[in-house]
Nucleic acid binder design. Structure first.
Lengths: 345, 345
DNA sequence: CTGAAAGCGCTAACAA
DNA sequence: TTGTTAGCGCTTTCAG
């Protein structure tokens, strides 16, 4: 006894046509949208569909040349809430449309990326959202060459061919550093992000610019890699604290590495912020939960997701329109992880 | 100039057949799997497919009666990491298969749920995972009546018709209460979960059983609803603290409401755990980040997701097999949010 | 405005 | 073992 046996037959467009007493192409027209259908006919069809509980078969619909009403989102993985926040925004925006979301995670296909791109394009999604820090350009090229609608989130490619949405990383880092400087810190360590990423570069540049504007030199020995990970932040901080002259404040390029820094600072027997001030970047939900509550730069992650959806949907509807680039504002969020340095107290 | 114009034609099974010099059904057989294809033919086909960069069109494949290699996951929303953890497990398990994941969130379709069920069944997924606390039975019935493969996560329906995976809620609550009792607490408040949920009932029952085993009465006035939300936990705690004789410890039915409790306790000028001990349930990632680190019961959320995928995939492959019910063990995680009550110090 | 006819790309009997 | 033949359920010309 297999599954088909038990299923009561799902009504097709044909059943609806029969019920309504029209041809099935008329049903298609009515359901599809704007065709010229006589109101009374439309009524009949709608009623019949309602009565039968008809639901169009997406597969068939998109096979026949229509839309699939599916958009794909490619993310590195679900392991951190940075992604989660973006997804939330994406989901919320999609909720207002009749699109559904199919989720792809790259950890499955580290290799043969461009083949994966092809797979996705063939999987029937109408467009693709990419939240993939280390996306290979060949990937993007594949999409671009096929003129497949896509939007890149928070990672504008160097030579942006497609639409993207990002945040003012430079600005945020600059302002937050400014804040640290005003508190009186002169020796500020920097835990940098994953090499090669745009955000990594911009945040460091913003940090450096603020220092420079205060006539402070960049101190290479306290600029260490943290790779945007908790572990990375932990290790980098350990190194800084082992220095003869450790910094009085640390700027972690993202919240996650700031969490690692807190851990390292505590293990070193020091307190945040009394002994050492600390800031992060992103303002993921945990930033306000951790003790002490982390001063950080808020990236409007969910809004970025929402914005990306809007752009993508427009692009799907109007492929001929120009690509768009949206940069959302960041905002310094002051909480409890900073205070003036010991010496100036 | 529309999109089609620019796309280089995507190779179809037909092109591959032509390239390999065989009929296209032979290509289908080779690519589909186990059919009897002569090794040399298989080779030819594979090479041709490779050369052309052929990728099967999923829509067509499933329309024609095959699998879509897509499974759906229905969740209430992406707003909390309880869901996130489960999704992570789901994604990881799926990564080992060749299935992709399509994500449905219920907040879009609060009404007409059974119609939504129909939509999902028609959207071409091969099976469905449900992480929906307050799922209506009509929904499940629809799936069940159609004999559609599905697995419910962490919410066994009262009369389980389908497969499900859950955790030992009762056991976990019992053990954690035991721990509190051994610490010397006699007056323990309980912030309960969302009414109507299985986990809510079981956790309270486990709590009550432990009390009873210690010959302690259940004190109704300090059992308050927290609805599994941070806000709910906050409000419930406020009420308890306003009592003439507030509890010396609070058991929050989930971590989220424990977070709310911490907030309320702090605002009341008290400290955790010195003035009042606190425990949660779930062990979401934030539980070990918050200060003080929360003592809680670990639910193997990701593993539940993984397990659910395994069951679902088996069910898809063998619809005739009996439904399965898996209950995973919970584990008490002792961290820093508890200590003996003041009086016994 | 509506019906008839032709596929979309693929799987699955059915023969050969 | 392989080719032939039907569709899956729908959108889209194209006539009428």
């Amino acid at each position: 006894m297999n599954r088909e046996d038990k299923r009561s037959p799902i009504p097709t467009i044909y059943d609806v046509a029969h019920e309504a007493g029209v041809s099935y192409s008329t049903v298609s027209r009515t359901l599809t949208g704007f065709e010229f259908v006589k109101p009374s006919t439309r009524e009949k069809v709608l009623r019949a569909a309602e009565k039968l509980g008809y639901v169009p078969n997406q597969q068939a619909r998109s096979l026949a040349g229509g839309r699939s009403n599916l958009i794909g989102v490619l993310v590195p993985g679900l392991g951190n809430s940075y992604i989660g926040e973006i997804l939330r925004g994406v989901d919320e925006a999609l909720a207002e449309s009749d699109y559904n979301l199919i989720l792809y995670t790259t950890h499955r296909h580290n290799s043969k990326e461009s083949h994966y791109a092809a797979t996705i394009m063939n999987s029937g999604v109408d467009g693709l959202l990419l939240v993939v820090p280390l996306i290979s350009t060949s990937y993007l090229d594949t999409l671009h060459d096929q003129n497949f609608p896509y939007v890149v989130i928070d990672q504008l490619d160097k030579s942006p061919k497609g639409s993207f949405v990002s945040a003012t990383n430079w600005q945020g880092a600059y302002e937050l550093t400014q804040y640290l400087l005003e508190l009186g810190h002169q020796r500020i360590g920097f835990i940098s992000g994953l090499a090669g990423l745009n955000s990594t570069g911009e945040r460091l540049a913003g940090f450096a610019a603020a220092l420079s504007d205060h006539n402070l030199p960049l101190q290479e020995e306290i600029i260490l890699d943290g790779s945007f990970s908790e572990q990375g932040g932990y290790v980098a901080t350990q190194k800084m604290l082992a220095l003869a002259d450790p910094p009085t404040a640390i700027f972690a390029a993202n919240d996650l590495s700031a969490f690692g820094a807190i851990e390292a600072i505590r293990e070193h027997g020091l307190r945040v912020p009394e002994d050492i001030s600390l800031v992060g970047f992103d303002d993921i939900p945990q930033a306000s939960l951790i003790y002490p509550k982390l001063t950080t730069v808020r990236q409007p992650l969910d809004q970025m997701g929402r914005e990306a959806v809007n752009i993508l949907l427009q692009q799907i509807a109007h492929p001929e329109r120009a690509k768009r680039e949206v940069t959302l504002a960041t905002e310094v969020i002051i909480r409890d992880s900073c205070c003036p340095p010991r010496s100036s107290k």
